[in-house]
């Protein structure tokens, strides 16, 4: 099955792609799954942390510093460090992926919450919302556009990063990229890259639609009359 790039041979081997459609689907689904899992777990961790940071301003500095540090660790180094402990598992991949989403997601939620107009907050308190009603019924709904903007960046970034986890045997579409490099077979690398790019564009588009759907108030034209 190993083929090398030979003079005169077409750059993209369509036949090979057609033969491997099953593989393509499997990897695409795996890629989506790894991404979804990373962003979902990232949200679960980020949400309470961001809400805590919003309530206790002084904690935001340390939280931002730690997640910022995680964000700057090179992914290869992180995997190299983790593999001895968690081996070549989904867990290893997810620890890496999740830790890269935290900075973006926490920042999104915190800046969403601090962007809530203070008059809306004060009016809500004045009308008798408790602190938690204020959070769930006013502050979070009003932060949704900014939070979703954070989720979009985190998701697109993660889709790119998932390809790197191919190095530890996961990686979804990264599998094709790695295979192409290993075997000097551009068709596979291109296939992996383009599909991963396409997935990012598609998911980003879907998230934009979701945002419009859940925050209709943020998208109305002002059409005032006396």
């Amino acid at each position: 099955m190993i083929r090398a790039q030979v003079e005169g041979q077409p750059y993209i081997d369509w036949g090979w792609i057609a033969d491997h459609m099953d593989d393509v689907w499997t990897r695409l689904i795996e890629h989506s799954y790894l991404t979804f899992l990373a962003v979902a777990i990232g949200m679960l961790i980020s949400f309470p942390l961001a809400i805590f940071a919003h309530r206790h301003r002084r904690s935001y500095g340390p939280i931002a510093a730690v997640t910022g540090l995680l964000y700057t660790i090179p992914s290869l180094a992180l995997f190299a460090f983790l593999v001895p402990y968690t081996r070549l598992s989904v867990l290893t991949a997810e620890i890496g992926l999740v830790s890269y989403t935290l900075l973006i997601l926490i920042r999104g939620v915190v800046s969403g919450l601090s962007g809530v107009p203070s008059d809306a907050r004060e009016a809500a308190l004045g009308m008798g919302y408790s602190r938690s009603e204020l959070l769930w019924r006013v502050e979070l709904p009003l932060s949704t556009p900014v939070i979703i903007a954070g989720i979009r960046i985190a998701t697109v970034t993660t889709i790119g990063l998932v390809t790197v986890t191919a190095l530890i045997g996961k990686g979804g579409l990264g599998f094709f990229i790695l295979m192409g490099i290993d075997r000097n077979f551009p068709t596979a690398s291109l296939l992996g890259s383009i599909l991963s790019l396409g997935l990012a564009v598609l998911v980003d588009f879907l998230l934009v639609r979701v945002e419009r759907l859940v925050t209709p108030w943020a998208h109305r034209e002002r059409r005032a009359t006396i």
Binding site: D119, E122, A123, M127, P141, L142, W217
Partner: peptide, 17 residues
């Protein structure tokens, strides 16, 4: 207490959503 007192704040403060 606040639920029993109508309150109109200086900048109106309608909830945008």
């Amino acid at each position: 207490l606040r639920r029993g007192i109508g309150y109109v704040i200086q900048s109106i403060g309608l909830l945008p959503h």
